[in-house]
């Protein structure tokens, strides 16, 4: 079980959340090149290390938030602040 630190609900079982993938800044659709847009949609860094990612608290508070997880150890760090949407979808 992965305990995900939701900024509203506290630590919650990951089955109650939806994984939103790597958190990347969204390019401006008006000025992005097709390459930039494709990179935003499909290219992932996929490091075996710390990764900034989006989570959706599906069965809890129904909020998106961003948090850092170590993909090799599944530790979380920098518990997110409510309303932290850096690179996020919300």
């Amino acid at each position: 079980m992965l305990l995900v630190p939701c900024p509203y609900c506290g630590p919650r079982n990951s089955v109650d959340l939806r994984y939103g993938g790597e958190s990347q800044p969204r390019p401006d659709p008006a000025t992005a090149t097709p390459e930039q847009w494709r990179g935003y949609l499909y290219r992932r860094d996929n490091p075996a290390d710390w990764l900034r990612e989006n989570w959706y608290c599906r069965s809890g508070c129904r909020r998106w938030f961003t948090v850092e997880r170590n993909t090799a150890t599944n530790e979380f760090r920098h518990p997110p602040m409510p309303g932290d949407k850096r690179g996020g979808k919300a």
Partner: peptide
């Protein structure tokens, strides 16, 4: 999968979570 212990879920506590796979 909520933590139902008294310190985490005392009388008066409110939460949303999946119960038997239904969001409640």
């Amino acid at each position: 999968s909520l933590d139902w212990s008294d310190p985490m879920t005392p009388d008066g506590a409110v939460a949303s979570a999946s119960v038997a796979k239904v969001t409640c």
